[in-house]
């Protein structure tokens, strides 16, 4: 465990909490993609299946439970909460998530560490996490005006990925047999997807203006 890894996990948790807080406090989920949230829940569930029999550390187990619980809560708010569900931007959130799920599943069947059910599900979750933000980015692009909390949510998520890359570099340099190229490549793709967003986020921040994405 190193400082980059811990920072990454905390940033990830913070991003989810910012989103939950926004929904809870404003009773609105405007600008949030339900598709992305559902994909993240699928990522967590398929990756953390081993929660019950593979105990690695209390740290890992607590985070796994918290990630599954908090993303379920977000989905519950968006689909079931009487006030919040009315603010859901259904007409703009039209990304077909099968376009992401099917290729990731096929890729996981072909490129994996070992051909077994749990290994393939785990690998699927790595690929799916890399692209799960796409419906959210498309929604932001369509609605253009991004409120501060939604902007902060996506920014913190991107930052979390950047810190994972620093963690991999650190581990590669300090641990003798550390290698996991499937995870690295997926992580690079995932972080790359945020670069464009980062640019506009930082521009808006520097000029202390509201974040607006170009069409």
């Amino acid at each position: 465990m190193n400082i980059f890894r811990v920072s990454a996990d905390i940033l990830h948790l913070l991003s989810i909490l910012v989103l939950l807080l926004k929904i809870h406090a404003t009773k609105s989920c405007a600008g949030i993609s339900l598709k992305t949230q559902e994909l993240y829940l699928a990522v967590f569930v398929t990756r953390y299946l081993d929660l019950f029999w593979n105990f690695h550390s209390l740290y890992n187990s607590v985070f796994k439970v918290v990630y599954i619980a908090t993303s379920s809560m977000i989905i519950w708010y968006m689909k079931r909460h009487r006030g919040v569900k009315q603010t859901y931007d259904k007409d703009h959130d039209t990304f077909r998530y099968l376009f992401l799920i099917v290729p990731c599943a096929v890729l996981a069947l072909i490129v994996n560490g070992r051909f077994s059910l749990f290994e393939i599900l785990w690998t699927f979750s790595i690929y799916l996490e890399a692209v799960a933000i796409l419906p959210q980015l498309v929604l932001l692009q369509r609605t253009k005006n991004v409120d501060n909390l939604t902007g902060n949510y996506v920014f913190l998520l991107g930052l979390y990925r950047a810190f994972y890359i620093l963690n991999w570099i650190y581990r590669y340099a300090t641990e003798p047999h550390y290698s996991a190229w499937i995870v690295w490549l997926s992580g690079l793709v995932q972080t790359g997807l945020y670069l464009d967003f980062f640019y506009y986020y930082l521009q808006a921040w520097k000029q202390s203006k509201k974040l607006q994405l170009p069409s």
Binding site: R5, D9, H12, H56, S57, N60, F63, K64, Y67, V111, N112, G113, E119, W122, T123, I126, Y164, N167, R171, E175, H177, Y178, S179, A180, W181, I182, V183
Partner: peptide, 10 residues
């Protein structure tokens, strides 16, 4: 391996 080392990450 291509993944094994990262199994302790989240």
């Amino acid at each position: 391996g291509p993944v094994e080392a990262a199994k302790d990450e989240l």
